[in-house]
Design a binder for these strands. Structure first.
Lengths: 217, 217
DNA sequence: GTCTATAGCTTGATAGAC
DNA sequence: GTCTATCAAGCTATAGAC
């Protein structure tokens, strides 16, 4: 960040604190007061920089979204180039979508982890769908179109459903709710996410190929 | 519903209203006042019957949990009997887990739909994990053990991860967040859930079989 | 840009009448 | 079991000094 401009740091502090508290307590469970205290900032400053609470929330969602959509786009284009005009192998598309997210949760530090927790909750709620859509719909459409090329026997609804299966699985494990700590076979060590990712890609890819089989449905 | 005992109706009204408002607004976003108004009941009555708000929430989560765990258990036992001592085919286990949930969301009426929406959100949050665990852990363990028999090449972590993939996918689509209405190929008609289920079972089953392959990982 | 102070409202919970 | 009435605490948002 910019030492000449401390305002940026303040705004970043606020966004980080809001992200963390929204992730653990939800939108209504995290008060602006709590966020201000966590950010070591005065209550009124949050309203000054971000407006009403809903706008603050939207700012938190938006902040990291561009990184993911850009990164996914880059990965997809590389896969497209490697395919030389033929349909991209499903596995490559799945990987292009999933990896940027996992990489940040694994290596990005606590902010990215909190973002994942937060997104996992709002993705399953109707309330914030407009905000999520504004950030992610365009990118999703590109992936869905690409998938249609690679699983040509699937109906539009099947491709869309399968895409949602992938997202649901991704968010459920990246939310790190603690479920792995109580069920046997799991650990408290979140570097397991690396091996979960190594399972998820073939798992989802095989799913896509299965519903693409001609005798399906 | 017992016409001799109107108390049961009152309590049911409260649980139904709470379920609906929790599903759409989250725990903190739904006030006891809103719930009382929706249930057409006086504010104080909710506290009288259910105690503090957290207990009301837990009552809502618990109410329908037993139906699912019982129903899944029955389906699993039938599959086990049909397998005659051999490992149950993965697809049968997946179906035994998923079908009771889908069936209720499809045919159970608005209460069950609201329950699904609510569970989709809290399953991805750490906060309510103890409550969810109390209701579902025992049943989950049975399914995980059974899956281990059927995908014997998988590590414990892989089985657990795959189980979470399945749950994430299930909840994401049963939450009916409205995402299907904006992306092409989807409709507003939630009887599509029937065909989503028909895709999900082979999708997830193929995933399990893939990560069970000897050369995997 | 940052602070203090506060207005105005909503919240969860309960005491007490019936 | 159900109601009315109310309290203390917390909430969002903003006005106004610096």
């Amino acid at each position: 960040m910019n030492k000449i401009n401390p305002v940026i740091d303040r705004k970043t502090q606020i966004l980080d604190a809001a992200e963390e508290l929204f992730a653990f307590n939800g939108f209504d469970g995290a008060s602006i007061r709590d966020i201000a205290k966590r950010a070591e900032v005065q209550l009124a400053l949050i309203g000054y920089h971000f407006g009403p609470k809903e706008q603050l929330f939207e700012s938190v969602v938006t902040r990291r979204a561009g990184y993911f959509t850009d990164c996914r786009q880059t990965e997809l284009e590389e896969a497209r180039a490697a395919a030389k005009g033929k349909p991209i192998p499903v596995k490559k598309i799945v990987q292009a979508y999933l990896w940027p997210f996992f990489e940040r949760v694994i290596d990005g530090g606590p902010g990215w982890k909190n973002y994942a927790k937060m997104m996992a909750q709002i993705a399953n709620s109707r309330r914030w769908q407009p905000v999520v859509g504004k950030c992610y719909d365009e990118s999703s459409l590109i992936f869905i179109d690409e998938l249609k090329q690679s699983v040509p026997n699937c109906s539009d609804l099947t491709v869309l459903s399968s895409f949602q299966f992938m997202i649901g699985a991704m968010l459920n494990v990246c939310a790190e709710t603690g479920r792995y700590e109580v069920l046997p076979g799991g650990t408290k060590n979140s570097k397991d996410l690396q091996s979960i990712f190594a399972d998820l890609v073939p798992f989802i890819s095989a799913g896509f190929r299965e519903v693409n089989k001609k005798d399906h449905g």
